[in-house]
Computed example of a mutant assay.
Amino acid sequence: MRVAFAGTPEFAAVALRAIHAAGFEPPLVLTQPDRPAGRGMKLQASPVKQAAQEWGVPVAQPRSLRLDGKYPEDARAAQQALQAAAPDVLVVAAYGLILPAWVLTLPRLGCLNIHASLLPRWRGAAPIHRAIEAGDAETGITLMQMDEGLDTGDMLALERLAIQAQHTTASLHDELAAMGGRMVVAALQQLRVGPLAATPQPSEGITYAHKIEKSEAALDWTLPAEVISRRIRAFDPFPGVSFDCAGESVKVWQATVLSGLHGQPGQVLDASGDRFIVACGQGALALQQVQRPGGRRGPIAAFLQGRPGLVGQSLLLAD
């Protein structure tokens, strides 16, 4: 069975490596164009492209797949490459481009998507982040037969994973990526024998995981401490949660909720030793790991050194 692949970030690369390790040699890999990255802003290949290049697998990097879109020459070249690859199935994971009808219908067995949520909850771009931010008790992987809607296709397989109190987007991402790779390999092996059972998604419980924006990074001390704590974990590693302290924008990466303490939102209740406690709209947060501009993540005790007189001050920004 000829299994082509479309994906871009590390989440997708994990699945591609699992597919390759299971003996499915992709005739073609689609991924997004190289992007500037790092301090030097040099062009960098996506994790999926890097994996494909290790095995000498052909890679196509169209800017769009829409034949009537802004880059029709890219779409036509990708169409020719896919037709020449003649895949039986196209596995898609966090690709980042919309698949038009000609792509969805080209493989004999259609397109299978690895989605990091329990559909129909958290359709869209950032399901891992939004599940943690919302305080969901569980998440998982849904394998889906793709159609022209946004994550609306029939479900082919589903596995659940409990969201633990220590989970960040980074750690949950790694567990879900491994789960997705294992599940898609099992599905492909079953497809060799016969079709997969498809179940329509429920019509109730639909939510959308909108893309994470940098503007969401500002810490709002008027929110309940529990909500802020979830955002800290949800926005790790991107974009982080930041607060202003003495004119510096400081990112907080770890914090503990203290329900028994109260004060005006943003008021520093303690700033001694390894204790930096700030009142929130409900309860308080004990900040444990922060990062100053240009620095690395470090313990709160190091941050507090040389910062006397913080107790009683407000970290709320003036309107």
Rank of each mutant, 00 (worst) to 15 (best):
F5S: 10
P9H: 11
P9D: 14
A13H: 02
V14Q: 04
A18Y: 02
A22M: 05
G23M: 11
P26G: 07
V29T: 05
L30F: 14
R35A: 14
K42L: 13
Q44T: 15
Q44C: 02
P47G: 05
A52K: 04
E54D: 08
V57S: 02
Q61F: 00
P62A: 11
P62G: 08
A75Y: 03
P87G: 05
V89W: 02
L97F: 03
T105L: 09
S117R: 06
L118D: 06
L119C: 00
G124I: 06
P127M: 11
P127A: 13
I128S: 04
H129K: 03
A134W: 11
E138Q: 15
T139F: 04
L150V: 15
G153V: 07
D154P: 00
E159Y: 00
T168E: 13
T169W: 07
S171P: 01
L172C: 09
D174P: 01
M179D: 03
G181I: 02
Q189R: 14
Q190I: 06
A197K: 14
A197T: 14
A197F: 09
G205C: 09
I206P: 06
A209S: 12
I212E: 09
K214A: 14
S215Y: 07
A218G: 05
L219T: 06
V227T: 13
I228T: 03
I228M: 04
S229L: 00
F238P: 00
S242D: 13
A246D: 15
T256Y: 03
G260Y: 15
H262A: 15
G266V: 09
G283I: 01
L287F: 15
G295N: 05
R297A: 06
I300S: 01
F303M: 13
L310S: 06
Q313T: 15
S314I: 10
S314D: 10
A318E: 15
D319V: 12
